[in-house]
Design a protein around this nucleic acid. Structure first.
Length: 375
DNA sequence: AACTCGGGGGG
DNA sequence: CCCCCAGAGTT
């Protein structure tokens, strides 16, 4: 372990005053390590925008099928703006972070109305779009319009924290400005798109979160984390919080080939998606029909209604919570209308055919899992 | 500044 | 299991 005096300070900070040297190493690496992607070389700002939104907190492998389907269904900003939200969400089904889809849709309408259908080109204007923050605005500005804005994403945090040995906890707001300033200083202003692309490719392929390939890294001679044996400790993050478990008891109503679903409106998970009438329970011991009967029907089941079996457990892991669900079918005779109860949980339901349920209604993965297992 | 929004792939 | 991913919005 070399003491810190033996580390050549000058060569480490030298990148900040000599960004060209950083750029040369990075772009040299990029040239030797091409990373083909479906949207690379894309000039259509609309498609660049869509790809950036889809890729937020999402791996390329997970997102690219969605991207291709999405731009095929909505080839232009006008097409997206004139679609309805349920249709847009259906194309997002299974991808997660559904506010991205709702914001994308709303922003398409912003572009048509506020920008007269002309895609905004400046960082400032881009940021007025819903769902477009610092990262996405910089990405679109640089990729589509060759404007000098450095992107700051998870890759960039990781790369810079290691090369410069920055121990600031990256979840903290002050880290954002610190890293943004550094990234902006290093940016190749004559080639911002290529620089940003190279940074992210480098982070995805070489300076990876676990087991980075330092032997092939162009910065391995001066990387502070490597010299100090801290590669696995950087970047520094906040401790994770514990995950809470929630219990959802779903009622799948079956009535001559139709079901009832309601839209999740509250400020909670899966906003905008649809689900069966649900009773949220306090604990796993409450999965009992009496609970449903008292909550939904005030103890009195409609005439002719018949319960099915309570399903096994279905679970869905989210970042901050775990959802544990059971389903039970309620067979209803055709003549009983949905307004059979005064319960608000059922009042807002819409009646859908089994085929619309899977083809048109955007559903959480949890529900899809139940539907597939049932068949 | 803290929290929340999904889901998947890899160690 | 745990980590984290081409982040953003809300409180």
């Amino acid at each position: 372990m070399p003491d810190s005096d033996s580390i050549p300070q000058k060569s480490l900070i030298d990148f900040e005053n000599d960004p060209c040297r950083f750029q040369k190493k990075l772009l040299g690496w990029s040239h030797k390590n091409p990373r083909p992607m479906p949207w690379k070389g894309e000039k259509d700002s609309y498609k660049i925008w869509v790809s950036e939104i889809i890729l937020q907190q999402t791996r390329v492998n997970q997102g690219w099928q969605y991207f291709e389907r999405f731009v095929k269904a909505f080839p232009t900003v006008e097409a997206l703006a004139s679609a309805d939200e349920m249709q847009v969400l259906k194309y997002w089904e299974g991808l997660g972070y559904y506010s991205r889809a709702r914001n994308l849709h709303a922003a398409a309408r912003q572009i048509v109305h506020d920008f007269d259908g002309h895609f905004p080109e400046t960082f400032h204007d881009l940021k007025t779009l819903k769902g477009v923050g610092d990262y996405t605005a910089a990405a679109i500005a640089s990729f589509a319009f060759n404007k000098p804005h450095a992107v700051l994403d998870g890759n960039v945090y990781r790369i810079l924290s290691r090369i410069f040995g920055i121990e600031t906890i990256i979840d903290l707001p002050k880290a954002r400005s610190e890293f943004q300033n550094l990234a902006s200083r290093l940016l190749d202003e004559h080639n911002p798109g290529a620089f940003n692309q190279a940074m992210m490719d480098f982070g995805a392929i070489c300076c990876t979160p676990a087991k980075p390939v330092c032997t092939e890294c162009p910065f391995n001679d001066t990387c502070r984390a490597r010299l100090e044996n801290k590669v696995s400790e950087l970047p520094k993050r906040l401790e994770k919080r514990a995950r809470k478990t929630r219990f959802f008891f779903y009622v799948k109503i079956s009535q001559h080939g139709f079901s009832y679903v309601c839209k999740r409106e509250s400020k909670d998970i899966w906003k905008g998606l649809y689900e069966f009438p649900v009773l949220e329970l306090e604990n796993a011991e409450d999965f009992k029909l009496e609970k449903l009967e008292s909550a939904f029907f005030k103890q009195k089941l409609p005439k002719g209604a018949r319960w099915g079996e309570i399903s096994s457990e279905f679970t869905q892991l989210l970042t901050h919570q775990k959802v544990l669900a059971r389903f039970v079918e309620l067979h209803l005779p055709p003549e009983i209308p949905v307004g059979f109860t005064k319960e608000s949980a059922l009042k807002k339901c819409i009646k859908v055919s089994e085929s619309d349920l899977t083809k048109k209604i955007p559903l959480p993965k949890l529900i899809i899992g139940f539907l597939q297992k049932k068949i």
